[in-house]
C-alpha cells in the first residue's frame, strides 16, 4: 500500500510542492519523486555520505531524513551548487585537481565540502579530513579530494 502526501519545501532555491510517500526518505523523494538524481545512494544508513545534502544550511545524510520532515525546509543538493556565474570554486578545484575518478561520491563530497567551507573558510588538512570522514570514496585515497578542498578554500 502506498500512502501519499504533498510536501512543500524550497529545493535549490525554488519553492516546490511534490507528492511523496509517507515512507519516503528525503533521498528517495529527491531521486524518484522529484527527479533530482544527482544525490546518490551508497548505503542507505548514514555510513557513506553519498546522499549528503544541505537542509536549512546544515549538512545531513538525506537517507536519514524522512520526506515528511522536509515540509517548510530549505534543501540544497549538488544540482544547486553552481550559480549563474558558473561552477563554484569547489567544483572547479575538483576538476583541476582530478579529485574524482568514478564520480559517484563526488556530489556528496561537494555538498559536504561546501558545508565545511561555509562553517570554516580556512580548514587545516586535519580539519578537512575530519569533516569529510563521513563521506567515503573508494577510488582516490582522498589525497586529491583534500587537496581540492584546501585549494578551493584559498580561492
Amino acid at each position: 500500500m502506498t500512502d501519499r502526501m504533498i510536501v512543500s519545501a524550497t529545493i535549490n532555491g525554488e519553492p516546490l510542492e511534490f507528492l511523496a510517500d509517507q515512507r519516503d526518505s528525503l533521498l528517495e523523494a529527491l531521486r524518484e519523486r522529484i527527479g533530482l538524481t544527482g544525490t546518490k545512494e551508497g548505503c542507505n544508513d548514514g555510513n557513506c555520505g553519498a546522499c549528503s545534502v544541505l537542509m536549512d544550511g546544515r549538512l545531513v545524510n538525506s537517507c536519514l531524513v524522512m520526506a515528511a520532515e522536509v515540509e517548510g525546509a530549505d534543501v540544497t543538493t549538488v544540482e544547486g551548487l553552481a550559480t549563474e556565474d558558473g561552477l563554484i570554486p569547489l567544483q572547479q578545484a575538483f576538476l583541476e585537481e582530478a579529485a574524482l575518478q568514478c564520480g559517484i561520491c563526488t556530489p556528496g563530497f561537494l555538498v559536504a565540502s561546501k558545508a565545511l567551507l561555509d562553517a570554516n573558510p580556512n580548514p587545516t588538512e586535519y580539519e578537512a579530513r575530519y569533516w569529510l570522514a563521513g563521506n567515503l570514496c573508494r577510488c582516490t585515497g582522498y589525497d586529491k579530494i583534500i587537496r581540492a578542498v584546501l585549494k578551493a578554500a584559498e580561492a
Binding site: G46, G49, V60, L116, L132, A133, G134, N135
Partner: peptide, 9 residues
C-alpha cells in the same frame, strides 16, 4: 558521533 552529516541530526 558519526560523521558531520550525522552530527547535523
Amino acid at each position: 558521533i558519526g560523521g558531520t552529516g550525522i552530527q547535523g541530526r
